[in-house]
Design a protein around this nucleic acid. Structure first.
Length: 271
DNA sequence: CCGGACGCCTGTCGGC
DNA sequence: TGCCGACAGGCGTCCG
């Protein structure tokens, strides 16, 4: 999916178009996503104003006067803002219809995404309550990561993809960050020194920030809100590049499954 | 508490 | 050309 840079790209794209707009209706074409889209949305949402568009990890938060619509893009979701009259595609499952004839349209071929409504503070919702720090925020630092890692014997790649450790780092950016930090993805998290976590924290920050600047990574499904792809795919150093020469040392890049996810790395540069 | 496996879906691609 | 299995950006849940 959409990892943090793609979700943040979506947030930045839709925010100026949605903030302050009034919701007039909800259009559900396929309610069966990760969880069923609640039927109550059709009478809870119309009339509300969208006050702000936030993000927590890979969750988008549409604050609407007293409640929050939580959106998740799953593996294949994307959001567009367009005229409600434009014909929906086969995987356009959900529209938030706005005043002035426009809508926020969720497309999600694999339907691992989610649309959830809560009237509690969103950070208290069970989906968000146990999330770790934002990787681009001040609470994400090497000391915390190091301390958490001491009891974790699983591969460091799985460790940084654990959303209770840090949010937003998915398979692409975990691979890229570990390459930049020179750490082998399979190394046990508790066998990495503090100094190397310093480097890893810097790498994660830099990779995510650059990817946001590029509008995210489009492999197949992801689109920015105006339909353009993200352009970070051309900056990927190792993801999807098995057999190609390492950008640092020209050894062929390796691919291996670690924790059920494809992992790409250089055995010469990453220890 | 931790770690690993599974399932949810559709689309695409490579091999035979 | 057609079929079939493997795999794809996530993550909640279950089990040992």
């Amino acid at each position: 999916m959409p990892e943090l840079p793609e979700v943040e790209t979506s947030r930045r794209g839709i925010a100026p178009l949605l903030t302050g707009r009034r919701i007039t209706a909800v259009c559900v074409r396929q309610p069966r996503l990760r969880w069923p889209i609640p039927a109550e949305l059709s009478h809870r949402l119309p009339g509300r104003r969208i006050d702000e568009i936030g993000r927590r990890g890979k969750y988008l938060l549409l604050g609407c006067g007293g409640g929050t619509l939580i959106l998740h893009l799953g593996m294949s979701g994307s959001l567009r803002v367009l005229d409600f009259s434009s014909p929906p595609g086969p995987h356009d499952h959900f529209d938030l219809v706005l005043d002035e004839g426009r809508c926020l349209r969720l497309r999600d071929p694999r339907r691992f995404g989610a649309v959830v409504w809560t009237e509690q503070p969103p950070e208290q919702h069970p989906l968000l309550a146990n999330l770790g720090p934002e990787p681009l925020g001040p609470e994400f630092n090497a000391e915390t990561l190091y301390r958490l890692s001491r009891t974790r014997r699983s591969p460091v790649k799985a460790f940084i993809m654990d959303s209770s450790v840090v949010v937003g780092v998915g398979n692409i950016y975990a691979n890229e960050s570990l390459f930049m930090a020179g750490i082998h993805p399979q190394r046990a998290a508790n066998r990495i020194a503090l100094a190397r976590y310093e480097k890893l924290v810097g790498a994660i920050r830099q990779v995510l920030a650059k990817a946001i600047e590029a509008g995210g990574t489009t492999l197949r499904d992801f689109r920015q809100e105006d339909g353009r792809p993200g352009y970070f795919a051309q900056s990927l150093q190792v993801y999807g590049r098995a057999g190609e020469p390492c950008p640092q040392c020209y050894h062929p890049l390796q691919q291996r499954r670690i924790g059920q996810r494809s992992s790409f790395f250089c055995t010469a540069c990453q220890k």
